[in-house]
């Protein structure tokens, strides 16, 4: 959703050097990555919820909602951030034995896009 190529604040003056420009394009700070948890028939629902609560510090209701999404839809985006951040989360999830992958948040594909963080609990909210 945030693949905009608008240069943003750097245009305020015409004195930008070539070096700065290339750093800007290298870091691409506005392209987030997603941490995806996949369903599998082995991991206990209680355990998955426990991991979401204890590792991410999510509330019981948020952890359970994400866990049910994994269970029913087959996958859920449970966190996003920079590539390094979500990779670190993925290794931690593998440590717990959850099946986790990282992916670039492109929006549009899959059940939920990169918008599901924060207050987003509009769709799929069922007991």
């Amino acid at each position: 959703m945030s693949l905009s190529v608008a240069p943003g604040p750097v245009t305020r003056e015409g004195t930008r050097t070539g070096t700065e420009a290339s750093i800007d394009s290298l870091t691409a700070p506005d392209i987030p990555w997603n941490l995806v948890i996949w369903n599998d028939p082995v991991n206990l629902m209680s355990y998955v919820s426990y991991v979401f609560q204890s590792y991410f510090g999510y509330s019981e209701s948020k952890a359970n909602k994400l866990m049910m999404e994994v269970h029913k839809k087959g996958r859920s985006i449970v966190a996003h951030g920079s590539k390094e951040q979500v990779e670190r989360h993925a290794v931690a999830m593998h440590g717990f034995g959850l099946w986790a992958t990282v992916e670039k948040a492109t929006g549009g594909t899959g059940g939920n896009s990169g918008k599901s963080g924060g207050s987003g609990q509009g769709k799929g909210k069922r007991g």
Binding site: V91, H94, A100, T101, E103
Partner: peptide, 9 residues
């Protein structure tokens, strides 16, 4: 492989 899964699908 299940214990040490790939990080990208």
């Amino acid at each position: 492989r299940r214990l040490l899964p790939n990080v990208m699908k």
